[in-house]
């Protein structure tokens, strides 16, 4: 993982040095959980800071972003069962699971492509490669078996986030963007599927 990160950092640095330009962006996103994830997590808001290479006229731009969000559970407790087998037969042991917190930091290698050349207003397509670091606290209980609370747990997930959107060159300094995409993740943590709708503003550094 660190080799990959070093390569991507090198690539970004190369792009900035090559063109002499960079853009610093701030993005606000609405994350709407999808699939199984939608049954355990409520929609939430995420904030992302982006650094991309390239000038305001470039069609292809790439860079890095870091983001943060906090997913809240759809309900206080999630009922669980554990099957106990033994000499007296099978028993279904009832229990529950509670997420006290579920905070996600995202680290992305982000790419986007402006479809209309030399147009101030243009549709875009993009693809983010994302690593999610997850910090959570939970409590779980199974009748006659276990009761525990854990804080400071960590987990990870990785994913791709294809996006479509629009961008508007507001001035020679500012670029406005709006995107919608779907996160497809895999990894150690339960899959985090969500729709991401975002708006952002980028400021060009010269």
């Amino acid at each position: 993982m660190s080799r990959c990160l070093h390569f991507l950092l090198f690539l970004l640095l190369f792009l900035i040095l090559k063109t002499g330009y960079a853009q610093l962006g701030l993005e606000s996103s609405f994350l709407s959980p999808a699939g199984d994830f939608s049954y355990v997590k409520k929609p939430t808001v995420a904030f992302t800071l982006t650094l991309k290479g390239g000038s305001i006229d470039d069609r292809y731009r790439c860079g890095f972003s870091i983001g943060y969000c906090n997913f809240k559970s759809t309900q206080d407790t999630i009922p669980t069962t554990t099957i106990q087998t033994g000499g007296l037969g099978n028993f279904v042991l009832p229990g529950y699971f509670v997420y006290q917190s579920y905070q996600v930091a995202s680290f992305s290698f982000t790419n986007d492509f402006k479809i209309l050349k030399d147009a101030n207003f243009s549709p875009t397509v993009g693809l983010d490669l994302v690593f999610y670091g997850i910090a959570y606290s939970d409590t779980y209980y199974t009748e006659t078996l276990v009761q525990a609370s854990e804080t400071g747990n960590t987990d990870w997930s990785a994913g791709i986030l294809p996006q479509v959107g629009i961008q508007y060159v507001y001035s020679s300094w500012f670029l406005l963007t709006a995107n919608i995409g779907r996160n497809l993740s895999f990894g150690s943590a339960a899959p985090m599927g969500f729709w991401k709708t975002s708006i952002g503003i980028a400021y060009y550094l010269r």
Binding site: S28, F30, S32, S38, Y39, P43, T74, Q75, T197, I199
Partner: peptide, 19 residues
Amino acid sequence: LLLLTAAIDFSSCSKHTYD
């Protein structure tokens, strides 16, 4: 623009429950 987009986002929020 931010407020408009946020309003559209929240109005499209789905209402899934674990039940």
